[in-house]
Amino acid sequence: MKTYVCIVCGFIYDETLGRPEDGLAPGTLWADVPADWACPDCGVAKGDFEAVAI
């Protein structure tokens, strides 16, 4: 499982945790997060996240 950091504000998407409040169950892989999903903290697009492997 990997973590992904929003390059603008530092919000972390952890695949293990998912983002249930956005309908992304724990274990949802980054590749399966919809393209129109945006950073909850700053609103930037999924495309602006960077992959940071644990």
Binding site: V8, C9, A38, D41, C42, G43, V44
Partner: peptide, 8 residues
């Protein structure tokens, strides 16, 4: 002067 207002 923050990021989210810019995106919106």
């Amino acid at each position: 002067p923050y990021i989210m207002p810019i995106m919106t």
